[in-house]
Design a protein around this nucleic acid. Structure first.
Length: 563
RNA sequence: UGGGGAAUUGUGUAAAGGCAGCACGAAUGGCUCUGAACCAUUUAGUCGGGGUUCGAAUCCCUGUUCCCCAGCCA
């Protein structure tokens, strides 16, 4: 036996960077990360990757993790979004976030003072060009931009004009504060980027206190610096903003120096991840709100029955790198199945009821049979399930003409009712349209509990619910929202909504569930035997229970039958 | 045709010059009071071409492909 080689090092590139910084004693061994959303929409599974990454890194290295709202554009931001984001990040990270929620808008004063510092150093100027003129003078990838006519204004004039901008003296869009860097840079971000613009809109937190608002590039590094973030982690598209991020910080004296690192954002098959498009789905009523269980939002996944643990596990397994990848939705489904298999309580529920009469079972008799709550966890114990002469089984579980390898109920065949008895089909009835509406069976009293004293085996075990005891419920089955693996495909001119899956939501009424389910709470997780994982919808009432299907069980029979 | 990134089995992700590993998928078999889960086995990969080296996914040269950038959005 050879010893396992010293190959423990399966660190992602960010962990490698952090560990090297730790070895070098950078920041005194301190690690601080943050998740910096703009409150302009609900968080989705793509954000989950960033949240898990940032909070996970902080946890792993004994550091701190902040939630910071990058609320620098009042025209797009709302309090509703702030609330939902706080809720989602707390839920996902399992972190109370106490005293660790910040707002960029709280730093506006300091940012303004630093802007004055840049002006005084001759590194920033007030520009009178209109937005259109700025665009026209920015140049192209191969042609340098042309300098603003105001580029060489005196410090005094800049100071005066900037102060008057802040006072609200000038109309929106009439002037900007720009950094004086390099109009000939091949990196557009360095061609005298705008630091402040005039926006006369009420900010969701500061109201009308300000009418100049900092741009992302100017603000972000300062926010990180104020919070003493050591590792400022963002997505790949900000790579060419890094030189500017560094440039701004380089101009300021006595300021904490964070570093920016970039990783690839999450791509998921059959999933639209753009906030703009998700908003379109909500506004166009293609879904029932941001927390519609079909949405890839954190709120939607939560309502669908996903656990935060499973989403975190998913983020762990997909890893992090700088390659723009698209992860198969199966990975997410695997993560939730794996988690729910361990924790979900097993219950019986019939989604498409078919009546079964046990001919030789005494009329009016009821008995209670013991069923295991979760074979994966003995501590969950057992429960009693009522049994009687008339039952419901799943329509799928009876076939008039059974295929060769079908081992459920069919004329003359014997199956086991889970935790109950062996039954043998003797007859069945059809309605005028030829649909099977009732199955007649006999049971073997010696098989009580589900096993036969003579040792004879049955191939199939099916679930059931007693008619007179059944709980009536509505069940909602969800499928992928889109039919195309990548509805986001930019090379496809067709509107992404053309790929909406018409069958993404199936509402099943008249489902018959085991009576114990009437005490279900939304936080409970259930596996309906042989069907899938479900949870009580938070919006449902005792009078009208609604269950959401989180994910179905794998079904190798369906695959077999397709052949 | 400027600049910045990236490329490892079907999909992702490791290997810091030394056995190309892991997860998901797929296939096969086993087990089973869930056709689930679980267990076992198998499958399949270093973008191309040169070079350095005893030895290259890794270093050098070169080519290719993909992504991002011309908001007073973030």
């Amino acid at each position: 036996m050879s010893e396992p080689v010293e190959k423990e090092r399966s660190l992602n590139f960010l962990e490698q960077i952090i560990e090297e910084d730790l070895r070098n004693g950078k920041h005194g061994g301190r690690v601080a990360t943050r998740f910096p959303p703009e409150p302009n929409g609900y968080l989705h599974i793509g954000h989950a990757k960033s949240i898990c990454l940032n909070s996970g890194l902080a946890k792993k290295y004994g550091g701190t993790f902040f939630l910071r709202f990058d609320d620098t554009n009042p025209s797009k931001e709302e309090t509703e979004y702030v609330d939902s984001i706080v809720n989602d990040v707390k839920w996902l990270s399992g972190d109370s976030l106490e005293n660790r929620i910040f707002f960029a808008s709280d730093y506006f004063g300091r940012m303004y003072d630093w802007a004055l510092e840049l002006i005084k150093k001759g590194k920033a100027y007030v520009c009178d060009l209109s937005g259109e003129q700025v665009r026209e003078t920015r140049g192209t990838p191969t042609v340098p931009g042309t300098p603003s006519p105001n580029r060489n204004r005196s410090v005094e004039e800049n100071l005066d004009l900037f102060e008057r901008m802040r006072q609200g003296e000038f109309p929106e869009g009439s002037r900007t504060l720009r950094a004086k860097i390099d109009m000939g840079s091949p990196n557009f971000n360095m061609r005298d980027p705008v630091m402040y613009r005039i926006v006369k809109a009420a900010h969701h937190r500061t109201g009308d206190k300000w009418c100049v608002y900092p741009m992302y590039d100017w603000a972000h590094g300062l926010e990180d610096s104020i919070e003493k973030i050591t590792h400022s982690i963002c997505t790949l598209e900000f790579e060419h903003h890094r030189p500017l991020y560094d440039w701004f910080l380089d101009q300021l004296d006595d300021i904490f120096r964070p570093r920016q690192y970039e990783f690839a954002r999450l791509g998921l098959t059959y999933t639209v991840m753009s906030k703009r498009k998700l908003l379109e789905l909500v506004k166009g009523r293609f879904v029932n709100g941001w927390d519609d269980p079909r949405m890839p939002t954190i709120a939607g996944l939560r309502r669908r029955g996903y656990t935060s643990e499973s989403i975190r596990a998913f983020c762990r397994t997909i890893g992090v790198a700088k390659f723009n990848s698209t992860i198969d939705l199966l990975m997410l489904e695997n993560a939730i199945r794996e988690d729910l298999n361990k924790r979900a309580l097993r219950r019986m529920g019939v989604l498409h009821p078919l009546k079964v009469v046990i001919e030789n079972y005494p009329e009016g008799q009821t008995e209670e049979l013991e069923a295991i709550n979760n074979p994966e966890n003995e501590a969950d114990g057992t429960r009693l399930v009522p049994f009687s002469k008339t039952l419901y089984i799943e329509q799928d579980d009876f076939r008039e003409d059974a295929p060769k390898k079908y081992f459920r109920l069919a004329p003359g065949k014997e199956v086991r009712l889970r935790y109950a008895y062996y039954i043998t089909c003797t007859d069945f009835k059809k309605d005028a349209d030829g649909n099977v509406i009732e199955v007649r069976c006999t049971y073997d009293p010696a098989t009580r509990g589900g096993s036969s004293p003579d040792g004879r085996k049955v191939q199939g075990t099916i679930h059931w619910v007693s008619v007179e005891h059944a709980l009536d419920a509505e069940v909602r089955e969800y499928d992928r929202l889109f039919t195309k693996p990548n509805p986001d495909d930019p090379s496809d001119p067709t509107d992404f909504k053309a790929y909406l899956n018409p069958d993404s939501l199936r509402v099943l009424t008249g489902c018959k569930l085991e009576p114990s389910l009437k005490d279900a709470k939304p936080e409970d997780r259930f596996q309906f035997e042989r069907l899938g994982y479900f949870c009580l919808d938070p919006g449902s009432t005792p009078e009208k229970p609604v269950f959401n299907r989180t994910v179905s069980l794998r079904d190798s029979w369906a695959k077999e039958e397709k052949k």
